[in-house]
Amino acid sequence: MRRLPILAASLLSLASLVAAPPALADTVQARCDVFPAGEDKATSSGLCTFSQRQGFVSIQLKGGQRIELKPNESTPNAYFDGRGEPARREILDANRGQVYRLENQSIFVFWDPAPYGKEASK
């Protein structure tokens, strides 16, 4: 009769492990346009990789530059870059993508990678 509580506790422990899968990052290929702060002409445009996990954002640009943003937990859509400088996120109309405004540049991330999407499949 003592085995029943032990078995129930073991099954409950196992169920909690199965029910809580590890947190995985959401990663997508996107198109990124990079603008120097205050400018209206992009200095770079092309495929990029966008990842988000537990509020942290990573953007890998085609030239190899990687932007890592840490969420500012006290303010929605606010982040800190790798140097601790503030950054903010804006959602584009019709949820076409997002804009990340950093100290020296703005990065437009478009979910539709066109016109670069076909290059990626070759």
Rank of each mutant, 00 (worst) to 15 (best):
A20T: 13
I107L: 00
T75R: 15
S13I: 05
S45I: 00
R89L: 10
A25I: 09
G38W: 01
R3T: 05
Y116T: 09
R96Y: 03
R2K: 08
D112L: 01
A20Y: 12
P5L: 06
E73D: 10
L92I: 03
L4F: 05
E103S: 14
Q65V: 09
A42I: 00
N77Q: 09
L12D: 06
G55W: 00
V109H: 00
R96V: 05
V18C: 05
M1H: 08
D81I: 04
A25K: 03
F35D: 08
I6L: 09
T43A: 13
G82I: 11
Q60D: 15
Q65F: 03
Q29S: 10
C48G: 06
V109T: 02
L24H: 14
P86M: 01
R2P: 07
A37F: 01
N95H: 12
A9Q: 06
R83W: 04
G97A: 04
E103Y: 13
P86N: 04
A30N: 12
S74Q: 15
R31N: 04
K62R: 12
G64Q: 06
S10T: 09
D81Q: 02
W111I: 03
A8K: 12
F108W: 10
L17G: 14
A9S: 05
E39K: 14
S121G: 01
C48V: 01
L12P: 02
T49A: 13
A9I: 05
L17W: 14
V18E: 01
K41R: 14
A120I: 04
A20I: 11
R3F: 07
A30S: 13
V109I: 15
Q54W: 08
T49L: 11
V28G: 02
A20K: 13
G84E: 02
S10H: 04
Y116P: 09
A30G: 04
I91A: 07
I59Y: 02
E103H: 11
P113A: 13
S58H: 09
F50R: 00
P21D: 08
A114S: 13
P115F: 11
S58Q: 08
K118D: 13
L24E: 11
F50E: 07
C48K: 04
Q98H: 10
A94I: 07
L17V: 14
I91C: 01
P22I: 11
L12Y: 02
D40P: 00
C48S: 03
Y116R: 10
D33A: 15
V34P: 00
Y100K: 14
S44K: 15
P115E: 04
P76V: 13
D93P: 10
P5Q: 05
T43V: 15
T27L: 06
E85F: 11
P71G: 11
G46H: 10
Q98E: 14
L17C: 12
Q52V: 09
K70L: 08
R66W: 03
W111H: 07
A87S: 09
E90P: 01
A30V: 15
L17N: 14
K70V: 08
E119G: 06
I6M: 09
E90W: 02
D81M: 02
I67A: 06
